[in-house]
């Protein structure tokens, strides 16, 4: 391995890139890439498999094709200068080849929603509903709670051959952003929204192919326009018939909360939670029981989207 600038210059003059310079590039790549997500910046699950690709890319695309090696050799005064400039070129390469993720696309769409009322920039780089809460970063527990609310919003499958799946319809993404804003009254930044989306979508990519096949098998179950109207009417009837407290109980159960947790949150006994849960389910069974499988699923998907946007703080205490 080269240890002096003179050795590197000699190799550069003789063959432009030889083993010594290549070793320096490899070292720069190794130093830099560990701070970057291999899936996004390397197209690989691990840098162990992608480092050499980055090395080759830096050499071919930047050092040779763009003449960056000539620049480095012309300007570097010390070996450290060479290494710093190589690391800079590696970062350039990674940035240039960054792959947009599903979350990136969703964040772009979410930012357009956050730029308009009812949302405001409550502090520099932080968004939410205008209100009394002092803007501050959420705690981990608050982020998790917001993710649980966001997870109630139904997702869509990608059309066949789609390379940039939308994941959420426009209506669903609006509901998701509203759910997050209600869960985090002190505001949130786009990167915090990104963390929430990553939590919510953890299972999404892994299940993608299986679900993709599955949805085409089930395509005949898609509700038509008339059934969608029936589903929406059913959902509205559920919201009308259930008390806010019952709706909150359904939401918390869908989030995976235990009856004990819900009882503690509402300040009531566990049997009381059970009784309210039973009454809510009776109403749901009355309303949904006559619908077919597809419209029933559609109505529950619509209901869960509505539940996600309920303001959690306003629902505690007695029934409305």
């Amino acid at each position: 391995m080269a240890t002096t600038l003179d050795e590197l210059r000699e190799e550069y003059r003789a063959e432009r890139i030889g083993p010594a310079i290549l070793d320096e590039v490899r070292r720069a790549v190794h130093d830099v890439v560990r701070r970057y997500d291999p899936a996004i910046y390397g197209g690989s699950a691990s840098w162990d498999h992608a480092e050499e690709d980055v090395t080759q890319g830096v050499v071919v695309d930047l050092l040779l094709a763009e003449g960056q090696l000539d620049y480095i050799m012309a300007t570097a005064l010390t070996l450290d200068d060479v290494r710093n400039l190589l690391r800079f070129q590696v970062r350039r390469y990674l940035t240039r080849n960054r792959r947009r993720t599903v979350v990136d696309n969703l964040l772009d769409r979410a930012k357009r929603l956050l730029a308009k009322p009812p949302y405001e920039e409550v502090a520099p780089g932080r968004y939410g509903f205008p209100g009394d809460a002092d803007p501050r970063p959420p705690t981990d527990a608050e982020l998790q709670a917001a993710a649980r609310a966001a997870a109630l919003v139904p997702r869509v499958s990608p059309p066949k051959g789609e390379r940039a799946p939308v994941v959420y319809t426009g209506e669903a993404l609006a509901a998701l952003v509203e759910a997050v804003a209600r869960s985090l009254p002190a505001g949130f930044s786009p990167s915090e929204l990104g963390k929430i989306l990553e939590i919510v979508l953890t299972d999404w990519v892994a299940s993608f192919l299986y679900e993709f096949e599955d949805v085409h098998r089930r395509e005949e179950e898609r509700p038509g326009p008339e059934e969608e109207v029936a589903s929406r009417a059913a959902m509205e009837e559920i919201v009308e018939r259930c008390s806010p407290e019952q709706l909150l109980i359904i939401r918390r159960k869908l989030e995976g909360a235990s009856d004990e947790d819900i009882a503690r949150e509402l300040g009531v006994s566990r049997p009381t939670v059970h009784a309210k849960k039973q009454a809510a389910f009776d109403a749901l069974r009355d309303i949904l029981g006559g619908l077919g499988d597809g419209p029933q699923r559609e109505a529950i998907a619509m209901l869960s989207m509505r539940l996600a946007t309920l303001p959690p703080g306003s629902l505690g205490g007695a029934d409305a």
Partner: peptide, 8 residues
């Protein structure tokens, strides 16, 4: 189209 991947 909603998939089974959506828990809801």
């Amino acid at each position: 189209r909603y998939t089974r991947s959506s828990r809801m």
